[in-house]
């Protein structure tokens, strides 16, 4: 991904992209391949928000160890997002509550929103992509 800084579509348009992560990692590939889209989108200098809701919150668990299932541990990539200027990370309180989790259980700093706040954030987006 060394050429990422050179990517742009030349239009100068900046849109609001929301990536809505609703699926747990490892059981399916969506979380991993979704993260790849987020990194590319940031290279296009777009206004990126990442939202973790429902089982998507499980992507951010501290202490993930994938050695035993012999798949790549991509959870450390979330920590690198800041380097890609992706700083808008959101989770919703109800999804945390429903899983017995708090912010302290997550590997990155997130902004915790109510469902209404998250819903309003979604409405104002230009593009919503869900993985």
């Amino acid at each position: 991904m060394s050429d990422m800084d050179e990517m742009e579509d030349g239009s100068g348009i900046v849109k609001k992209f929301m990536f809505l992560n609703r699926k747990a990692p490892h059981g399916t590939v969506y979380a991993l391949e979704g993260l790849e889209v987020v990194l590319i989108t940031a290279a296009f200098d777009q206004d990126v928000s990442m939202v973790f809701t429902d089982d998507g919150i499980y992507q951010l668990m501290k202490g993930i160890d994938t050695k035993g299932i012999e798949v790549k541990d991509f959870s450390r990539t979330y920590r690198a997002l800041e380097g890609y200027d992706i700083e808008k990370l959101y989770v919703d309180q109800a999804s945390l509550d429903a899983r017995g989790l708090t912010e302290d259980d997550l590997i990155v700093d997130v902004t915790v929103l109510s469902v209404d706040e998250m819903a309003n954030l979604m409405v104002e987006q230009d593009v919503v992509i869900s993985f």
Partner: peptide, 8 residues
């Protein structure tokens, strides 16, 4: 509608 979301 100005945007859409597919709940997959």
């Amino acid at each position: 509608h100005s945007n859409c979301q597919s709940w997959l």
